[in-house]
Amino acid sequence: MIVREKIQSFESLTLIKEAAFSKNTLGRKIREEEDCIRTCYMLDRDRIIQSKSFRRLKHKTQVYIKTFGDHYRTRLTHTLEVSQVARNIGVGIGLNENLIEAIALGHDLGHVAFAHNGEEVLNEYLKGGFRHNEQSVRVVTRLENDGRGLNLTEEVINGILNHSGLGTTKDIITLEGIVVKFSDKMAYLNHDIDDSIRAGLLSEEQLPKDIVEVLGDNSTLRLDTLIKDFVKTSNDNINNGIKEVGLSKEINAAMIELREFMFKNIYLGDTLKVERNKAKFILEQLIKYFEENPEEMPEIYLTIAKKESLQRAVADYIAGMSDDYCLLLFNKIFVPKAIID
Score class of each variant (00 low, 15 high):
Leu150Lys: 09
Val82Lys: 10
Arg148Ser: 09
Arg131Cys: 01
Val85Asp: 15
Thr141Glu: 08
Asp171Trp: 13
Gly90Lys: 07
Asn151Met: 08
Gly90Asp: 05
His116Arg: 06
His107Arg: 05
Leu95Arg: 10
Glu101Gln: 08
Ala115Tyr: 06
Ile89Val: 12
Gly167Asp: 13
Thr169Glu: 13
Asp146Ser: 14
Arg148Glu: 01
Asp146Ala: 11
Gly165Val: 15
Val82Ala: 05
Val140Trp: 12
Glu120Val: 05
Asn151Trp: 13
Gly106His: 09
Gly147Pro: 12
Thr77Trp: 00
Leu109Lys: 01
Leu166Asp: 05
Leu122His: 03
Tyr125Ala: 00
Gly110Ile: 03
Val91His: 07
Glu134Pro: 00
Gln135Glu: 15
His116Phe: 11
Ile157Val: 15
Gly147Trp: 08
Thr174Leu: 15
Thr168Ile: 03
Gly147Asp: 01
Glu81Asn: 07
Thr169Asp: 15
Gly94Phe: 01
Ala115His: 14
Ile93Met: 10
Gly165Thr: 15
Glu124Asn: 11
His116Ser: 08
Leu166Thr: 09
Ala86Asn: 11
Asn98Gln: 01
Gly92Lys: 08
Ala86Glu: 12
Leu166Trp: 04
Val139Trp: 00
Leu105Arg: 10
Thr141Ile: 00
Arg148Met: 01
Ser164Gln: 03
Leu152Tyr: 04
Glu155Gln: 09
Ala104Tyr: 02
Gly167Lys: 04
Gly118Ala: 07
Thr168Lys: 11
Asn123Gly: 13
Ala86Lys: 05
Gly147Lys: 10
Gly106Leu: 10
Glu97Arg: 07
Arg87Val: 13
Gln135His: 14
Val139Cys: 05
Asn117Glu: 15
Gly90Glu: 09
Ile100Met: 11
Ser136Ile: 02
Leu143Pro: 10
Glu144Phe: 04
Val91Phe: 01
Gly90Pro: 04
Gln84Lys: 15
Leu122Tyr: 05
Lys127Thr: 15
His111Gly: 12
Gly94Ile: 02
Val156Cys: 15
